[in-house]
Amino acid sequence: MDDETAGRAGYRRSAGSPRGAARRQELLDRVTDDLQANGLADFSLRRAARAAGATHKVLLYHFADGDELLREAVQRLRERRITGGLGAAADLPTLAQRVRAVWPILSASAESAVLDQVIGLSMYDPGRYAELSRGASRLYLPALLSFCPPGWPDDRKLQVAEMVLATLRGFLVDLRTSGDEAGIEAGLAALHRALEREEAAG
């Protein structure tokens, strides 16, 4: 069955065959590339179809709807950012240094502007888009938990990782809305000192 035939087949989702799964991933990669390059401002199923070199009916064969496609594309962007940078920070010797090294990755990577727009969408229409932001916690928390000293109890690791995630997210919003780089740098320095004290406490 070719793409056009699939699209005419009642907007059905891919049945999960190896060929269907491969085609789905190919389409998702192309839509993700477009999202990374052009942002969320006018994202639509038809725009996604143009980027994928397919029709919107074909996309609806492989994805339940435009919201599912957007969620998966945003998740793919986050995975790229984690794979591309957060792993390297884990090689640094202290928790504070690891977290400090994450900031340039979060703020300057090609994916950052789009992912920051996701925060705005989830605040503007939480009923529809909150899951886009919740997905960030599920992806970033494991990396931040791994930054914590291995001897710490799990609940302490979680508390510190949640604090770091919320703080960095706040800095990202501030960066996009105010552009106050000096203020953010001061905040990062304070976060660094707080993490050094936390780690020194054993």
Rank of each mutant, 00 (worst) to 15 (best):
138 R>D: 12
124 Y>A: 15
91 D>H: 10
118 V>R: 06
109 S>L: 14
108 A>I: 03
104 P>N: 11
117 Q>S: 13
106 L>W: 03
137 S>P: 01
138 R>M: 02
101 A>K: 08
108 A>Q: 15
87 G>N: 12
111 E>V: 09
94 T>Y: 03
126 P>M: 07
108 A>E: 15
134 R>V: 08
117 Q>T: 11
102 V>E: 12
136 A>K: 01
109 S>Y: 08
132 L>W: 00
81 R>C: 15
79 E>G: 15
99 V>H: 02
114 V>L: 06
95 L>K: 10
137 S>E: 13
128 R>W: 00
118 V>F: 02
87 G>Y: 11
128 R>T: 11
121 L>D: 01
92 L>D: 12
84 G>H: 07
123 M>K: 06
95 L>E: 09
83 T>C: 10
120 G>C: 05
110 A>L: 14
85 G>T: 05
113 A>V: 08
104 P>E: 13
127 G>H: 06
128 R>Y: 00
81 R>N: 14
100 R>W: 04
85 G>Q: 10
117 Q>D: 13
86 L>R: 06
94 T>F: 01
94 T>D: 04
119 I>E: 08
85 G>F: 05
139 L>H: 13
92 L>K: 15
125 D>P: 00
117 Q>M: 07
112 S>M: 10
106 L>M: 15
98 R>V: 09
85 G>C: 14
137 S>H: 09
91 D>I: 08
91 D>K: 11
123 M>L: 15
118 V>H: 02
110 A>I: 10
131 E>V: 13
122 S>R: 01
123 M>E: 12
126 P>T: 11
138 R>K: 11
84 G>C: 13
110 A>C: 10
114 V>W: 01
124 Y>C: 05
87 G>K: 10
97 Q>C: 04
95 L>S: 13
113 A>P: 05
126 P>E: 02
100 R>E: 14
93 P>D: 07
128 R>C: 01
131 E>W: 00
97 Q>G: 14
105 I>M: 06
138 R>I: 01
121 L>H: 06
128 R>S: 11
112 S>G: 13
136 A>N: 07
124 Y>D: 09
127 G>Y: 01
86 L>F: 15
79 E>N: 14
130 A>E: 02
138 R>T: 13
98 R>C: 07
95 L>M: 05
93 P>Y: 01
130 A>M: 06
89 A>P: 01
139 L>S: 14
85 G>I: 06
122 S>M: 06
133 S>Q: 09
106 L>C: 07
82 I>W: 08
86 L>N: 10
86 L>Y: 12
125 D>Y: 00
137 S>I: 09
92 L>Y: 03
